[in-house]
């Protein structure tokens, strides 16, 4: 918008239209790109009055693969009915923090608590059973098993529990039924539940992951770069899904490099720099420059 004189929009291999910049605004362009109206300004945060913590992190220290401190004494709490954003330039400990909170990396020191109890250094399965959902940063490498079907991916974490499992056997009828439900409810574009997941587009893979993670109504959702690489339509849908969970009382820990996403969605924002929290601010009150300074290492 700042540099061009004219803009041409392509959709599915065809030109949708050409405008001069003077006539182009975000909303019009988005509509031309996607084919329908896209909400950029999501409804203002209705403050949910639940005063309970979905997640408490106390003095957490986590090492990376090379034995260096990646997370250094981080403490924060995510309340229920709140989206807590963690901003920061990639490589400042976000990955290690998320992995420690989801059972994929050990914490050297410190404690992690959720409503059902203490979960420090518990396995990924224990955390799932404690009501912690994890939307991973690498959706294809970690979030799905690409050769397996959409239905199988939708029960990737639930297959061992009833109603999908009876004794040692898996009830594939129940799995397919559930998959149909999820495909409709979350708008996953797929030829069917038996389609291999790798044939889905990035946005639909992410919707699959969200369907899987959110369908159990978890108390805490850890979302890592949830809309990375997705188009505006998918981004909007995913934001809506997270906000809806927030309204229903879940706590959401949102880690993202997209500052706009953090500002749009979060109630409170903490900035991570070199493994430490530089400051925690209310999203409505903080000016962008202050956030930028914190991301560069200046304490609030």
């Amino acid at each position: 918008m700042e540099v061009a004189d004219r803009v041409t929009v392509l959709r599915k291999g065809r030109v949708t239209g050409t405008l001069s910049i003077a006539n182009a605004d975000k909303r019009t362009l988005a509509r031309m790109m996607v084919g329908r109206d896209v909400e950029f300004q999501l409804p203002p945060h209705a403050k949910t009055e639940i005063n309970q913590d979905a997640l408490v992190v106390d003095d957490l220290w986590v090492y990376n693969e090379r034995g260096l401190e990646a997370v250094r004494g981080v403490s924060f709490a995510v309340r229920r009915g709140e989206i807590f954003g963690i901003a920061g330039i990639a490589g400042n400990g976000q990955r290690e923090l998320i992995e420690a909170l989801t059972g994929l990396r050990p914490a050297e020191r410190g404690r992690v608590r959720v409503p059902s109890g203490e979960v420090t250094n518990r396995t990924a399965r224990d955390l799932y059973e404690a009501g912690v959902a994890h939307i991973p940063e690498e959706r294809i490498r970690m979030g799905i098993v690409p050769p397996m079907t959409v239905a199988e991916n939708l029960v990737l974490k639930r297959f061992r529990y009833p109603p999908f499992s009876r004794g040692t056997l898996i009830d594939f009828t129940a799995v397919t039924e559930f998959a149909q439900q999820m495909i409709t409810e979350y708008g996953i574009a797929t030829p069917g539940p038996r389609t291999p997941a790798r044939l889905l587009s990035g946005g639909n893979i992410q919707k699959l992951i969200l369907a899987r993670e959110l369908s159990t109504e978890p108390g805490l959702i850890v979302a890592a770069h949830p809309t990375y690489g997705l188009d505006v339509s998918a981004t909007e849908q995913i934001h809506r899904l997270l906000l809806r969970r927030r309204e229903n009382g879940a706590g959401v820990l949102l880690v993202s490099e997209d500052l706009e996403e953090i500002l749009t969605l979060s109630d409170r924002i903490a900035v991570l720099f070199r493994g430490e929290i530089m400051g925690t601010v209310d999203s409505r009150e903080v000016p962008r420059e202050a956030l930028g300074l914190m991301m560069a290492g200046q304490r609030a």
Binding site: T102, G103, L104, T123, A124, R125, Y128, H134, P136, E138, R141, M142, G143, I144, V145, P146, P147, M148, L156, K157
Partner: peptide, 15 residues
């Protein structure tokens, strides 16, 4: 077995 064989990273993630 199939999850583990087709994507060990996702297998860890899935518990």
């Amino acid at each position: 077995i199939r999850v583990q064989g087709q994507n060990p990273d996702a297998a860890r993630y899935a518990g």
